[in-house]
């Protein structure tokens, strides 16, 4: 599937209140192209609540239910059960949440819904921060990154949400990135055709949150993959497959680029370069990334 062959379907209407260069909006467009209009979306507190624009208007051309921050997966469970009772099982139920609503406050409800085999697609668009509240640290924020609550740089590494999801042994989970719309589209299509819980996480570089120019969103996503900071993969019934450049990195057919090449363009890491290079922390980041890939190779090669 090439970008030019993606369906014309547009469910994100003009008038959305997203920031320029917003990765969530890019992701949403692809999501609806893949899933079509027979979709109901459950959205917890996150940037998308703003993107929807103001009541009584909406920028979404599908039914959307907003719900509390920690509640997306549980709310979607209710929607899904109600649809089944009404014989509308052909409607795709999607929970669309940020990394805060997924890694942190919503992890309990998510784990519960996965364990209960809820027939839905849970999508986490991961911009590595609480962005809607103004750039605070989340469990997905990488080590060393500045946020308003990690002023000197985060002192902990991010959670491996993908591995937490895999521990639930659901039929399908995947990691993708807004910079690879075909990859995102194909993964959503595959998820739509599978019954039971599906989890897809989308790397979503956020211009104001990461402090990079708004026209660089796609590039930041591509760099995240090429440096190995983020891996594209999918897991079908416990069988893991790496995709695109991530597959080549895994198989050591290409070297991953240094993480430094990615983070030096992001203002959130500026303190690692100015006034002088923080060699120690930059080394820690590279080592941690190598450890992640070593673990991937041990487990999945």
């Amino acid at each position: 599937m090439a970008i030019k062959d993606l369906p014309d379907t547009e469910c994100v209407l003009p008038g959305s209140a997203a920031c320029p260069g917003c990765p969530a909006t890019m992701g949403l467009r692809i999501v609806f192209k893949a899933l079509g209009k027979n979709t109901i979306m459950v959205v917890p507190a996150c940037c998308t609540a703003v993107i929807e624009s103001l009541h009584p208007h909406t920028s979404f051309d599908i039914p959307v239910m907003n719900i509390a921050f920690e509640a997306a997966a549980a709310g979607a469970s209710g929607v899904e059960a109600a649809l089944r009772q009404q014989g509308k099982e052909d409607t795709t139920v999607v929970a669309w949440a940020g990394d805060g609503g997924t890694y942190d406050i919503g992890i309990q409800a998510l784990s519960g819904a996965l364990e209960r085999q809820t027939n839905f697609i849970y999508i986490c668009y991961n911009n590595q921060i609480y962005s809607n509240t103004g750039i605070q640290r989340s469990g997905a924020t990488p080590y060393g990154a500045w946020t308003t609550t990690t002023v000197g740089g985060k002192t902990e590494f991010r959670k491996e949400m993908g591995e937490i999801i895999q521990a639930h042994h659901i039929p399908y989970s995947a990691q993708t990135c807004v910079s690879y719309p075909e990859d995102l589209y194909n993964k959503l299509k595959k998820a739509k055709g599978i019954k039971g819980p599906k989890y897809i996480e989308i790397m979503a570089p956020c211009p104001p949150g990461w402090r990079f120019p708004m026209e660089k969103t796609v590039e930041m996503g591509t760099m995240a993959v090429e440096t190995g900071a983020w891996a594209l993969y999918e897991v079908e019934n416990d069988k893991m497959t790496f995709n695109g450049k991530s597959k080549l990195i895994l198989e050591k057919k290409i070297e991953r680029k240094p993480i430094e090449e990615w983070i030096k363009y992001q203002g959130r890491f500026r303190h690692l370069f100015k006034p002088e290079k923080d060699v120690k922390r930059l080394k820690a980041i590279e080592e941690h990334t190598d450890q992640m890939w070593d673990r991937y190779r041990r487990c999945y090669l």
Binding site: M65, S77, G78
Partner: peptide, 22 residues
Amino acid sequence: EYICVESEHSAMCACIGASAAG
């Protein structure tokens, strides 16, 4: 449908989702 949720918070969320679905 009987959803055995993992907390009361989720119980009410699931009821909200189902009720909103009609």
